[in-house]
């Protein structure tokens, strides 16, 4: 019993193909991976929006902008 389909390397490698664990679940893994990607994109946009709003809320605009522009 092995997650990769082989529990010994006493084989002719010419007959060996895929050796990653849980073969047969590729399609499910792809669906999970695509969901993770889209979720990450949404999180990143929300996080950036919150960050921008935070800057607007906390900055003393006149003072900080002058300081930052002078810093170049």
């Amino acid at each position: 019993m092995s997650t990769i389909g082989y529990d010994s390397w006493a084989v002719d490698l010419a007959d060996v193909g895929a050796v990653y664990p849980f073969q047969g679940t590729e399609f499910v893994m792809v669906i999970i991976a695509v969901v993770l990607w889209i979720a990450w994109q949404i999180w990143a946009i929300r996080n950036e929006n919150a960050d921008i709003q935070h800057d607007i809320d906390v900055a003393d605009m006149k003072k900080h902008i002058k300081e930052e522009v002078d810093r170049y």
Partner: peptide, 11 residues
């Protein structure tokens, strides 16, 4: 992406 070739494959 679900093809066997898109992973660890000795062939």
């Amino acid at each position: 992406p679900w093809s066997e070739n898109m992973g660890t494959h000795l062939g």
